[in-house]
């Protein structure tokens, strides 16, 4: 009994009661909707849904598009983050605000903006179509562009924060050892911000995987070409809510598996 009270007192002193309550409410806020999804799942018909060609096509397309979007975001977003973190130039804060705008912009508006830019009659879309023969709307490439547009800011701000918090004297040390700026970037800077790179890429990928509004607005919805999982879920909700629940679960399972896998692999499950 004495032991019990002592351990309880220790618990209280190490974690304020209010914090524990609020944290519990916060966790419940996430868990209860998931629980609702799980409990309402028509498990018997779930397996049939899961194996259907349309679901597999949507899943395949979702993975392809989200991974491609993450790759593009890495290629373009890391230099952007580096520029924001390391170069001082007039208009930097404005440019930074513009590039993270897709985080607050309703994705559907983002999709319309993309149409106005890369659509058939868009600012550069017309030129793309006539000179290069590239059509983005209604194509898988368009779905990837839409996902990149919405998801890349997550990578940019994460990597920028990593670059800002890193000790730049390591870069100085590398230069005094004869490393060119390019070598410094590849062999010192990027390895040192690797946790931020991974976290940013994972966030970006997760956002791309769940992307709906910009994709359906810019790329449209066609099974096998532009119908990603979230689009399939939304449409299934119209006709067959059971199927929608199963599709959501598939999406959930895939993202959970990847996130947990990455965590164990790279972020060190400590």
């Amino acid at each position: 009994m004495a032991l019990l009270t002592r351990s309880r007192r220790r618990l209280q002193s190490s974690a304020p009661f209010l914090i524990v309550i609020l944290a519990g409410a916060g966790a419940a806020f996430f868990i209860i909707p998931l629980l609702g999804l799980l409990l309402r799942t028509p498990w018997t018909s779930a397996w049939q849904q899961f194996g259907s060609a349309e679901v597999l096509a949507a899943l395949r397309l979702s993975l392809l598009a989200s991974v491609s979007a993450t790759a593009i975001a890495l290629v373009l977003g890391v230099p952007l983050a580096w520029t924001f973190a390391r170069l001082a130039f007039p208009g930097r804060s404005v440019l930074r605000a513009l590039t993270v705008l897709p985080m607050v912009l309703p994705p559907v508006v983002g999709g319309v903006a993309l149409l106005l830019a890369f659509g058939r009659r868009g600012l550069v879309g017309g030129w793309l179509a006539t000179t290069l023969g590239i059509h983005l709307p209604f194509t898988t490439a368009g779905a990837i562009i839409a996902e990149t547009f919405v998801a890349m800011p997550f990578l940019v701000i994460t990597v920028e924060a990593g670059l800002r918090s890193m000790d730049t004297r390591f870069e100085d040390a590398a230069r005094t050892l004869g490393a060119s700026r390019w070598t410094v970037l590849w062999r010192v800077t990027l390895p040192l911000v690797r946790p931020s790179l991974i976290a940013g890429a994972v966030l970006c990928w997760a956002r791309a995987l769940g992307e709906f509004g910009a994709t359906i607005t810019f790329a449209g919805n066609f099974p096998g070409t532009t119908q990603t999982m979230p689009l399939a879920v939304y449409l299934a909700l119209e006709s067959n809510p059971d199927a929608a629940i199963v599709l959501s679960l598939v999406l959930l399972a895939v993202s959970l598996a990847v996130l947990i896998g990455l965590r164990d692999r790279w972020l060190g499950a400590s």
Binding site: P137, F138, I216, T217, G220, F222, P223, Q227
Partner: peptide, 14 residues
Amino acid sequence: PASQEADVKSVLSK
């Protein structure tokens, strides 16, 4: 079709 839109307004706006 190039796309199967989620609702009639989307068809119209395309």
